[in-house]
Simulated assay, not measured.
Amino acid sequence: MQAPAKPPRRVAPLKPAPSRTNDPERTTADILEVATREFADKGFTGARIDEIAESTRTSKRMIYYYFGSKEGLYLAVLEAAYQRVRSIETALHLDDLPPEEALEKLVAFTYDYQLANPDFVRLVANENMLHGQFLAQSDVIQELNAPAIKTVQDICTRGVRAGVFRRDLDPVDLHMSISALSFFNVANRYTFSLIFKRGLDTPKAIALRRDRIVEMVLRFARK
């Protein structure tokens, strides 16, 4: 007697691969990453939403869905750029260090971060060319920068109490000096290097400049 045929094994239907539209966090993160490069390289006026869409394999419609407009995307890029640097600054735990060590670590971090993130420097430079037009619209960036000044203020206050820093330090002025020294090193490195025939990109030159900037700020801050 012939055995009854086995019923065919049921195969689970294949799940569709997750699409980018089903992962909005990843989609927006990808758009912001590509848009950061585009705006940093070409500025607000020169950047093209079409190119950002093509590079992220999305569409202009998708970008406008998440960010509203080119202006909205540019502002989101600026806010994300400031968010990154401020979040890392917070993780430095400068309150746990003596004031001189805390200031040294902050200056060295600022130098290293801007050197490693030239897109941030270009974005800031481009926004300055626009006279801060978009930054002025962002309450987020204003809120992000307030703790940065408080960090410098706390270091100065502790340094004065410890008798190692001068009493007339202005935290905004000190923050500006630290930023200026680090910013120039990235924003002007090509022109400065060509004009004065000095290589600035070798490990030795980078380390030496870092040490000099740290020393200049600490000498200024000390009594």
Rank of each mutant, 00 (worst) to 15 (best):
P4N: 14
A12P: 11
A17W: 13
A17L: 15
P18W: 01
R20T: 12
T21Y: 06
N22D: 14
P24R: 00
I31H: 02
E33A: 07
V34Y: 00
G46R: 06
I52W: 08
E54H: 13
R57H: 13
R61A: 14
Y64M: 06
Y66E: 05
G68W: 03
S69A: 05
Y74L: 09
A76Y: 12
Q83N: 09
R84Q: 14
H93K: 08
E101I: 03
E104S: 11
A108W: 00
F109L: 04
F109M: 03
L115D: 09
R122S: 11
V124L: 07
M129D: 13
L130R: 14
F134A: 00
D139M: 13
D139A: 14
L144V: 10
A148D: 15
K150T: 13
V160N: 08
G163P: 08
D170H: 07
P171W: 09
P171L: 12
V172E: 15
L174V: 12
I178G: 04
S179Q: 08
F183M: 02
A187W: 09
K197D: 15
G199K: 14
A205C: 13
A205M: 13
A205L: 13
L208P: 00
L208T: 10
R210L: 01
D211N: 14
V214C: 13
V214R: 12
A221D: 03
K223T: 09
